[in-house]
Design a binder for these strands. Structure first.
Lengths: 201, 201
DNA sequence: ATGATCTGACAATATAGATTTTCAGAACAG
DNA sequence: CTGTTCTGAAAATCTATATTGTCAGATCAT
């Protein structure tokens, strides 16, 4: 046993930094692999190869594949949400304009990163209770953002109706993805807004 | 090698009948098991136990678990669709009344058989290309039925918008299921109709 | 320079599950 | 009755993957 080497540097960075970097590499690689072949049909080996790391480092950061999937999902939803909220903020005060901006940002993001889109919207349910919980949380956050964008101060919406509208957004996205993103983002956004209108009337 | 025994009777029924019966037993049992524990977390063994059959008989009727899942999904969607169409037919000619009847029938069915509901709506995507295709087909059929219920003769709807409304129905169902079917069927139906109204305006 | 620790490639093991085979007894046809 | 087919239970095999371990060389601290 030698002295505590917690802060030891290797190729420029400390142990904790290298660890975190590898973890991040795994998350990014897994996002691609899962989006490409599907979580169900991927394995530790393929993810590690894609990350340029050995399988050993998988177990350094995660106990199960589920944990990695969860990390991927959470990173993707967090980034997407930040992007959408920024777009909404930039769009000013009009509720419909804000909604249009958020939806446009959302659909553009799905088109820019199809693999992330697949990860977010396809075959994500039923993996494990933890992942299911994360999905619930993400939907709840989206509902909250929808309320922020559309509600007048103090106004409350029907939660069930909001859940339905979210489902409309998601399935329009799925339909669009299945078409190979055939329609321009603007058309998809306007179609979605028609469904969202049922919240306001 | 003896004579052809294709028509041989055993415990009352012929070979082909017994085979078909076992196949059906497997489908029914698997629908329960998959709905209960999820397809991903079930196996051949558990399905066979639930069916009261040996694993040997699984391979008599199916090559892979995927095939069985597909059979379950197709049976469930077929039955559900028949039930919904019958309800619509009984509701008369008014488009809204027909839609209300179809949705009521749909939600009541999900409540009556929660395991079937889980099988139909949760963790079904991304299992295999064949299953994904079956989902596509089922959604297409639902879109068709929606058009039948709502469209005036010759009228055409926006397919993307219809996909969105279907997503709305599905996510309202998911929300309702997650609540333990807390609200009465009528409330769920009326909420869904609000979304469907975006097709008509 | 030297001993410690990190890294990458790979081998070894463990485990779960699918798939196949065996076998003894029940139900059948003639 | 006699020989054949069917059935249910369990064992044996196969396969893919997760998980752990080994080891030589690279990088580091002093």
């Amino acid at each position: 046993m030698t002295a505590d080497t917690t802060g030891k540097r290797y190729r420029g960075s400390a142990t904790a930094e290298r660890r975190a970097l590898r973890r991040q590499q795994l998350i990014d690689a897994a996002t691609e692999v899962y989006g490409e072949h599907g979580y169900r049909h991927s394995g530790v080996k393929q993810v590690c190869e894609a990350a340029g790391l050995t399988q050993r480092y998988f177990y350094e950061s995660f106990n199960h594949s589920d944990e990695l999937l969860l990390a991927c999902y959470e990173q993707a939803t967090r980034r997407l949400r930040e992007r959408n909220l920024a777009a909404a903020k930039a769009a000013g005060d009009d509720p419909v304009a804000r909604s249009r901006a958020m939806l446009g940002s959302y659909f553009q993001a799905l088109k820019d990163e199809p693999n992330v889109a697949r990860l977010l919207l396809v075959e994500i349910r039923g993996i494990s209770p933890a992942v299911d919980q994360a999905i619930e949380d993400a939907l709840r956050a989206s509902t909250h953002d929808m309320t922020l964008a559309l509600a007048k101060p103090g106004q409350q919406f029907d939660r069930m109706l909001q859940a339905g509208i979210l489902g409309g957004v998601i399935h329009i996205a799925l339909y669009w993805m299945a078409s190979g993103y055939a329609q321009p983002v603007e058309v998809v956004t306007e179609t979605t807004l028609k469904i969202g209108a049922s919240l306001l009337q």
